[in-house]
Design a protein around this nucleic acid. Structure first.
Lengths: 239, 239
DNA sequence: TTCAAAGTTTAGCGTAGTCTAATGTTGATG
DNA sequence: CATCAACATTAGACTACGCTAAACTTTGAA
């Protein structure tokens, strides 16, 4: 029930915590997480999800409305946020303390998050100065299970002329992550929307303060989540 | 096949690698590892070991002589040493970089050693300056799978008057580890045997250079593995 | 209003590990 | 050298996950 013989390394089978994490992400905006979406995210067959859903709701971690989907209970949400805290702190620690690069940390954190103790996570957090955001710009839940609810707009939806701070890159795909990094589109960057083509066409933005233009197709723009920034007469407001 | 529902945290079931590690330790001095000893070390029932032994020998990691015991093949030895390298580097990293104390690292390393990648281990090793010994004084196998074969004597067997360097503490029991640490009996310490009582009585030693005496009962003295040191006319030879 | 497609659940089986109880083997002792 | 205790293995059941195929809902479009 732990590691198998043939494939000792990559845990092919998602753990309970992985289910909770994807349910958290899928039902984030208050809705239900659909069986098939969970299955797609975890790369298992839908009946496997039905089975796990049954077990998880028996133990009180989720609530299941048949044919509708699932939601986390308070307990399940706590467990999910605990794993998200672990994941994001691990990514930050690996990046800052061990020289990993932005695109390479995800897989490592994905495995480690199941093995680390709360004590280790707290020690890492302290070593990093109790940071609030991970290398992708996502907020790190506190040990008590609180998380900053960011009000983010996808770049594809942001208004023409609006001033934005890139906060999250909504993909784990390393080719895309590398592409964004090459374009200078990393969390924390400031930008303005200068143009958008109709019919789901690309968005053109300008980086701040350099003014360098970038053209981002809609598929990719949908992955770039931004905070809309108030503008003061002396420039952009700081956080 | 990964983490179960009821006991999400402590991996109650030993992994393949855990089997290889204990077989390595049990058959270290060239012998066979007995089924019941493996079972005792892993806290599983003997038939579970028989089952795993079958699978491990089918994949060529061990050789099994029925009713005699098992030995590692070259491949199995390599896999065991890889895990031992991970374990010892993790203990050292946690101790030196994250402020863990000597007694508390074992359980953490035991879980992490299954989740870390070779890359992470190599990065940790580099961050530590490619160390040769872990916090217990045990040699760390190289990435290529070589390990220093130490010629060690148990303190209980060392000759009266001999000069020794404490190299390994042969227990994982944290109460004993803490006791040794309090007595100043940590790997690297130099000492001389000043007295030994007959009938399995205690050994008296003097710490070097302070000369502080310590009295160690036979049960504990058996756990303290030392290197016998050549003496030069200017003092103890360095490593 | 029906009906078909899409999505979900159930049924039934496979695998990799655990366990207890029963059976085999070995080696020391009378 | 026969016996018996200790140790090892086999037999058979259980759990927790996975899968495919089949049955059941829901929904959206004709």
């Amino acid at each position: 029930m732990h590691a198998t013989l043939r494939d000792a390394n990559p845990p092919l089978t998602p753990s309970v915590e992985d289910y909770l994490k994807v349910i958290y992400h899928l039902s984030n905006q208050g809705g239900f997480a659909a069986t098939s979406d969970i299955a797609a995210m975890l790369d298992v067959a839908p009946p496997s999800v039905s089975g796990m859903v049954k077990r998880l709701s028996e133990t009180g971690l989720i609530e299941h409305v048949p044919y509708r989907g699932v939601q986390l209970t308070a307990q399940g949400r706590r467990a999910a946020l605990r794993m998200i805290r672990r994941h994001r702190l691990l990514e930050l620690y690996l990046t800052q303390q061990l020289g990993y690069d932005w695109g390479g940390v995800h897989a490592e954190a994905e495995r480690l998050e199941h093995a680390v103790s709360d004590e280790l996570i707290d020690r890492m957090a302290r070593a990093l100065g109790d940071p609030l955001y991970d290398p992708h710009g996502d907020p790190i839940p506190t040990a008590a299970g609180e998380i900053e609810e960011a009000e983010l707009v996808s770049l594809a939806d942001a208004g023409l002329g609006s001033k934005l701070e890139l906060r999250q890159v909504g993909t784990q795909d390393s080719a895309r992550l590398r592409f964004f990094a090459e374009q200078g589109l990393t969390p924390g960057v400031l930008l303005t929307v200068t143009d958008r083509q109709p019919f789901n066409g690309p968005t053109t933005i300008g980086l701040v303060p350099s003014g360098d233009p970038r053209v981002v197709g809609r598929e990719l723009a949908l992955l770039l989540w931004c905070r809309e920034m108030p503008v003061t007469d002396r420039g952009y407001a700081s956080r």
